[in-house]
Amino acid sequence: KKKYVIKVYFEDTGKEVEIEAESKEEALEAAKRLAEELGLKIKKVEIYP
C-alpha cells in the first residue's frame, strides 16, 4: 500500500514537520489539526508519493 510523506512548513517559526499518511486528504487533515494545536499558520505543504 502506498504511503504519502507530507512536509509541512509553518510561518514565523521556520519549523517543518513530516507526516506520513495513507492519502493526501488524510495528510492534509493531519497538517491542519497540527497547525491548530500549535496555534501556527501553514506556510507551505509539500507532498511526496
Results as ranks from 00 to 15, higher is better:
K1S: 07
K1G: 14
K1F: 13
K1D: 07
K2C: 11
K2W: 14
K2E: 07
K2L: 13
K2T: 12
K2P: 02
K3S: 13
K3M: 13
Y4P: 00
V5L: 05
V5S: 08
V5Y: 10
V5G: 03
V5A: 09
V5K: 14
V5N: 04
V5H: 08
V5W: 14
I6H: 01
I6K: 00
I6C: 02
I6Q: 00
I6L: 09
K7V: 04
K7W: 11
K7A: 03
V8I: 12
V8S: 00
V8K: 00
Y9W: 15
Y9L: 07
F10R: 00
F10M: 02
F10L: 03
F10A: 01
E11N: 14
E11D: 12
E11V: 15
D12W: 15
D12G: 12
D12S: 10
D12A: 10
D12M: 13
D12Q: 10
D12E: 08
T13L: 08
T13Q: 08
T13M: 09
T13N: 13
G14D: 09
G14H: 07
G14N: 11
K15G: 05
K15Y: 12
K15D: 05
E16M: 07
E16N: 11
E16R: 06
E16G: 09
V17N: 02
V17L: 10
E18Q: 12
E18S: 07
I19R: 02
I19A: 03
I19E: 01
E20S: 06
A21L: 07
A21R: 08
E22M: 04
E22T: 06
E22Q: 04
E22I: 04
E22D: 07
S23W: 04
S23E: 06
S23K: 02
S23M: 02
S23R: 03
S23N: 10
S23Y: 03
K24M: 12
K24S: 08
K24R: 07
E25K: 06
E25S: 04
E25R: 06
E26W: 15
E26Q: 09
E26A: 14
E26L: 11
A27L: 09
A27R: 00
A27T: 02
A27Y: 02
A27E: 00
L28G: 05
L28Q: 08
L28Y: 13
L28P: 01
L28D: 04
E29Q: 06
E29G: 08
E29N: 13
E29W: 15
A30E: 08
A30I: 12
A30Q: 11
A30R: 14
A30T: 10
A30S: 11
A30F: 14
A31T: 03
A31N: 00
A31D: 00
K32P: 01
K32F: 15
K32I: 09
K32C: 06
K32L: 13
K32D: 06
K32R: 06
R33W: 14
R33K: 10
R33Y: 14
L34I: 07
L34T: 07
L34K: 09
L34P: 00
A35R: 02
A35Q: 03
A35K: 02
E36W: 15
E36D: 11
E37C: 15
L38H: 04
G39W: 02
G39M: 09
G39T: 03
G39D: 03
L40M: 08
L40F: 14
L40A: 03
L40R: 06
L40W: 15
K41Q: 04
K41E: 05
K41A: 08
I42K: 00
I42M: 03
I42Y: 02
I42D: 00
I42S: 01
I42E: 00
K43W: 15
K43V: 06
K43S: 05
K43E: 09
K44S: 10
K44R: 10
V45D: 00
V45Q: 02
E46S: 09
E46V: 14
E46P: 00
E46I: 11
E46M: 12
I47L: 11
I47G: 04
I47W: 12
I47C: 05
I47M: 13
Y48H: 11
Y48S: 05
Y48K: 05
P49H: 15
P49N: 14
P49R: 11
P49T: 14
P49C: 12
P49S: 14
